[in-house]
């Protein structure tokens, strides 16, 4: 497999073409706009939260295949999870992208996300993969602080 095929795996291109949980949830408790000013990637993340659990989560936005497929896969991974577990999963994904953890270290819930490990070879693109995850993390922590609905903006730095 060439480096490029490794980066643009079928599962990534599939999520890019057919994003899952696309759109917005109605009456969201969490609503965060995530932007990456470097490349103009932008997502609007909305989530319905009840009793500490993400009942529904949607993303819409525009950007490169890496940012949009990563967001789509994230919604699949977090839907139905508790906020605490979601935060753990975000942490595990980030450890793969930024640290020494490999795709094989990912828990079952994040299995498909191992496809994004190839992005690590392209340092400028890692931010694209992280955008949705940092956006949801910001939404969750703000929600936990306030306990009520949050509307926020997250800028990837």
């Amino acid at each position: 497999m060439t480096d490029i095929d490794d980066l643009y795996r079928d599962v990534i291109l599939d999520h890019f073409r057919n994003p899952r949980n696309h759109g917005r949830v109605t009456d969201p408790q969490i609503s965060v706009e995530g932007v990456n000013p470097f490349c103009g990637d932008q997502i609007q993340l909305t989530a319905k939260v009840q009793e500490g659990r993400i009942l529904d989560i949607c993303v819409e936005g525009k950007g490169c295949s890496i940012s949009q497929s990563s967001a789509s896969m994230m919604t699949e991974a977090l839907k139905g999870r508790t906020l605490a577990r979601s935060q753990e999963l975000v942490g595990q994904f980030k450890r793969m992208m930024l640290g020494n953890a490999s795709g094989e270290d990912l828990p079952e819930e994040l299995e498909d996300l191992a496809a994004l490990e190839g992005v690590k070879k392209y340092p400028v693109r890692v931010k694209c993969a992280l955008l949705a995850w940092n956006t949801v993390l910001e939404g969750i922590s703000e929600f936990e602080k306030n306990g009520t609905s949050v509307v926020k903006q997250h800028t990837e730095e």
Binding site: I4, L7, Y8, C39, G63, C64, S65, I66, R125
Partner: peptide, 10 residues
């Protein structure tokens, strides 16, 4: 259908 950053990387 292709973002310029994907074009640049490839």
């Amino acid at each position: 259908g292709v973002h310029p950053h994907d074009v640049g990387t490839i």
